[in-house]
């Protein structure tokens, strides 16, 4: 019964896994021609590559901005929705909408909203008497535009998970707290938040992994030849361009290995750290 999945995994996942590692030590020419073993050349080229360091730095910026902001907004909405609001199911559906929509399509609309000449954002700013801004071509704002889109996509999805976690907390705790005269804030910080930490932990892990691989939003919102590309491209974007725009597949394999090692390290680090803040009942 495990044959189909196992055979499929071997062909399309296990074999590629080792193949990428092997290829990262080879010079792979155009049309996938293997030009022989080159030792650690791809790695030393990668570590000398300014563009790779910039991409890595950008990626860490994405993680540092997108993960906490997505978590914060998702938590805020989840807590508010848990407070016996009317029309809960309508709110849930609307908030979830961005999460199911194709990020490519969503990025196109946002690109249009942020457009420096005709975009509605500048239109609004103009009406308010503020000066317009070239959001996506200015290297200092482009990255934040992409963060906005990513956070906008994430909030609804993780809100659903957090809300399910909050609803899983036993009512008994709150009843006991009310008898003792606890305020809403006390209940949130002393009961909800500590008991929600396993769910928050899961959400943070997922957010870090997915944000580290941010690609579609950048691909759709920034032109490959634009100056802003250098200041917004993520490590996956750098991988994609090396592999498919410049056809440096040996080098790209080295980038893939680096990506894997970093995500692995971050995840293991978070697993180790969870003892310090995650409560399991």
């Amino acid at each position: 019964m495990i044959a189909p999945v196992t055979i499929g995994l071997i062909i399309f996942y296990f074999y590629p896994f080792f193949r990428v590692i092997r290829d990262s030590f080879h010079n792979i020419g155009s049309f996938d021609r293997d030009l022989g073993f080159v030792g650690i050349d791809n790695y030393s080229a990668m570590f000398k590559d300014q563009e790779m360091w910039q991409a890595l730095g950008n990626t860490f910026k994405y993680v540092v901005i997108i993960v906490p902001m997505s978590l914060l907004f998702a938590l805020l909405i989840a807590v508010l929705l848990n407070a016996k609001v009317k029309g809960l199911s309508v709110f849930r559906v609307i908030y979830f909408l961005p999460a199911i929509t194709m990020s490519v399509a969503v990025s196109m609309v946002w690109r249009w909203i942020f457009n420096g000449d005709y975009g509605v954002l500048n239109g609004i700013l103009n009406a308010l008497g503020m000066s317009p801004h070239l959001w996506l071509s200015d290297k200092s704002t482009a990255l934040f535009c992409i963060c906005t889109v990513s956070i906008w996509t994430n909030v609804g999805y993780y809100m659903i998970i957090l809300l399910a976690g909050i609803q899983g907390i036993s009512k008994g705790y709150y009843e006991a707290a009310e008898i003792d005269g606890a305020t809403g804030f006390q209940k949130f910080f002393k009961i909800t938040l500590p008991l929600l930490t396993p769910t928050i932990f899961y959400v943070v892990i997922m957010l870090v992994i997915s944000t580290f691989q941010i690609f579609g939003e950048i691909y759709m919102m920034i032109d490959q030849k634009a100056v802003a590309m250098k200041y917004t491209q993520s490590i996956v974007m750098h991988f994609y361009r090396s592999a498919f725009s410049y056809s440096k597949k040996g080098y790209a394999s080295a980038v893939a290995v680096l990506l894997f090692v970093i995500i692995m390290t971050l995840t293991v680090f978070q697993m180790k750290m969870q003892k310090k803040w995650v409560n399991y009942e």
């Binding site: 590629p16 990428v20 580290f212 996956v236």
Partner: peptide, 11 residues
């Protein structure tokens, strides 16, 4: 545990 992008070149 491995990011999907990792497998793309050999695939």
């Amino acid at each position: 545990m491995v990011p999907g992008t990792f497998f793309i070149l050999p695939q």
